[in-house]
Simulated scan of single mutants.
Amino acid sequence: MIEETGIVRIVEGNTVWIETTVKSTCGSCHASENCGTSVIAKAFTNKPELLKLQAPDSLVVGQRVKLGVPESQLLSASMLVYILPLFALIFAVVLLQSLLPSAHEIWQIGLGFAAMAMSFYALRRRELNGKQKHFSPIILGAVNEDTVTMKNEIPLKKLS
């Protein structure tokens, strides 16, 4: 499970808006002072991101919570976003080449990119329709000063 800590910003019944900060991993690299990617990462500040989630327990504004995404869900989402458009591009080019062998390369490239763009559009529409709720992070528990309260209500040691 990949975990992140966030802060509850808005509570609307069972729905909460949780703010997390997107962080770059360049700060932990030993070569960050001599790396061009690190310079670019430093130019873009860490920006907060709001997530709308269903709250299993009653949470209050300002409370810190621990969020988690199972690795299997992350891998499936990555496969959809990276592999599906690539297969759409290859399939469209091969299909056009087999149906019209005399077609110019520019048409093959254009159709390939159009198929790839359509796959991105279809994935976006699927996400916006809310059919992929299982790709959303889940609230693992509330992080308090002395304890962490999980769903099973077993107090654990403070997270560092």
Rank of each mutant, 00 (worst) to 15 (best):
R124S: 13
S28G: 11
G112H: 06
S32K: 15
L99K: 02
Y121T: 08
L84Q: 00
Q108S: 07
I10P: 05
P48A: 07
E4L: 12
S78P: 03
V8Q: 07
N34L: 14
Q132T: 15
I106M: 05
V81G: 05
Q54K: 13
S78A: 14
G68Q: 01
K52F: 03
K66W: 02
E4N: 10
L111C: 10
T37N: 15
L86W: 04
A31F: 14
G62D: 08
F44A: 11
S98P: 04
T25C: 06
T5N: 09
R126N: 10
C26T: 11
A43S: 14
V8P: 08
A122K: 07
I138H: 03
K151W: 04
S78Q: 04
T45M: 07
G68A: 07
I7W: 02
D57E: 13
F113E: 02
Q54H: 11
S136I: 02
L89Y: 03
L100I: 14
F91L: 11
R126F: 10
L100G: 01
G130Q: 06
L59F: 15
K66E: 11
F44K: 12
N14Y: 10
S76K: 14
K23E: 12
I2P: 03
H30I: 12
G130A: 02
I154K: 09
V93E: 01
F44L: 13
N14L: 10
A142S: 15
I40A: 14
K157R: 04
V60D: 14
W17F: 14
I106P: 00
S160L: 01
Q73S: 12
K133T: 11
L100C: 07
R9G: 00
T5W: 02
N144M: 09
V143R: 02
V60W: 10
K131D: 10
V94C: 06
H30N: 13
H104C: 01
L159E: 06
D57I: 12
S98L: 08
H134Q: 13
P137I: 02
K42A: 11
G6H: 02
A92R: 01
E71V: 10
W107F: 12
T147N: 13
R64M: 05
N152H: 08
G6A: 05
K158N: 03
W107K: 01
G13N: 11
K52H: 10
N34K: 15
L159C: 00
L159Y: 00
P101N: 03
V39K: 13
N34A: 15
K131R: 09
H30P: 12
Q108R: 13
K131N: 08
L67K: 01
S98R: 06
V148F: 12
P155M: 05
K158G: 00
P48I: 05
F135P: 03
E127F: 08
L99A: 06
L51F: 04
S119G: 01
L74N: 09
R9H: 06
Y82K: 08
T45R: 14
G6T: 07
V148H: 05
W17L: 12
G141I: 13
K23C: 10
L80D: 03
P85H: 05
I154W: 01
V8F: 07
Y82Q: 08
S28C: 09
Y82N: 10
V11I: 07
L156R: 04
K157V: 01
G68Y: 01
L159N: 00
V39G: 04
